[in-house]
């Protein structure tokens, strides 16, 4: 999830600040054990999410999954320890997730990626190449729809042979064709002179 058209005040804060605050707040939440304080934090995080005017449609699926997991956690913790402890734990996790959603939904995907690449840039010191990292990330996004297409084609072909539900008959051709696509792409990149090695002259 990320912000496509979020124009709230949160989207104007630098991603690095948002990310840093999220880390500090998450650590802070673990230092608090009083359920009253955690309840206040939870209400504040709901207020933050609401004030950021985020796209709530994107939140439905992740919220359902987190509520199911936390429901189980709540019951188990309540039985094992005590119910106040369970309330604190669930409030803390919900607060952290809402804060994280607030950051994710008010930050564009490209901004977030740029931040990660900045954080990763010290890999240059140990011989890593940030250009290769950028290439890998953008190529992955481009390959996903292509692989979905390959998967559907393989499945159709195996369906004709009565093998559509045989995991090996589907996965082996999928992997082989993926490797061929990778080989062709690498050759094409080389032929076009994509020199990703760091310049050392």
């Amino acid at each position: 999830m990320s912000a496509a058209h979020n124009a709230s005040y949160l989207s104007r804060i630098k991603p690095g600040w948002k990310f840093g605050s999220l880390l500090v707040l998450s650590i802070g939440l673990y230092l608090i054990s009083s359920w009253q304080v955690l309840l206040v934090a939870f209400i504040l995080s709901v207020a933050l999410l609401a004030s950021a005017r985020v796209d709530l449609k994107q939140l439905r699926a992740p919220l359902i999954s987190i509520v199911i997991i936390l429901g189980v956690v709540f019951i188990l913790l309540g039985i094992q320890t005590n119910w106040l402890n369970a309330v604190s734990s669930v409030l803390r996790l919900l607060t952290m997730c809402l804060l994280a959603y607030s950051v994710s939904l008010s930050t564009r995907f490209s901004e977030m990626l740029e931040l990660f690449q900045q954080v990763a840039s010290p890999i240059r010191v140990v011989g890593g190449n940030p250009d290769q990292v950028a290439l890998a990330l953008s190529m992955t996004i481009r390959f996903i729809p292509e692989l979905k297409k390959v998967y559907n084609e393989v499945r159709e072909a195996q369906h004709a042979r009565g093998l559509a539900n045989n995991p090996l008959a589907v996965t082996v051709p999928l992997v082989i064709r993926s490797l061929k696509i990778a080989d062709e792409t690498a050759e094409a990149l080389d032929a076009r002179g994509f020199d990703s090695a760091p310049a050392n002259h």
């Binding site: 190449n129 290769q132 290439l135 890998a136 990330l137 190529m139 992955t140 996004i141 481009r142 390959f143 996903i144 292509e146 692989l147 979905k148 998967y151 999928l174 992997v175 993926s178 490797l179 696509i181 990778a182 080989d183 792409t185 690498a186 990149l189 080389d190 994509f194 020199d195 990703s196 090695a197 760091p198 310049a199 050392n200």
Partner: peptide, 25 residues
């Protein structure tokens, strides 16, 4: 920088990307 180094480096990156895409798909 010799050609062979950059060639295999590019190939490694493409292999990483195609398997990342497979995990995602």
């Amino acid at each position: 920088m010799s050609l062979s180094t950059s060639t295999s480096q590019t190939k490694n990156t493409v292999y990483i990307a195609i398997f990342a895409a497979m995990i995602a798909a």
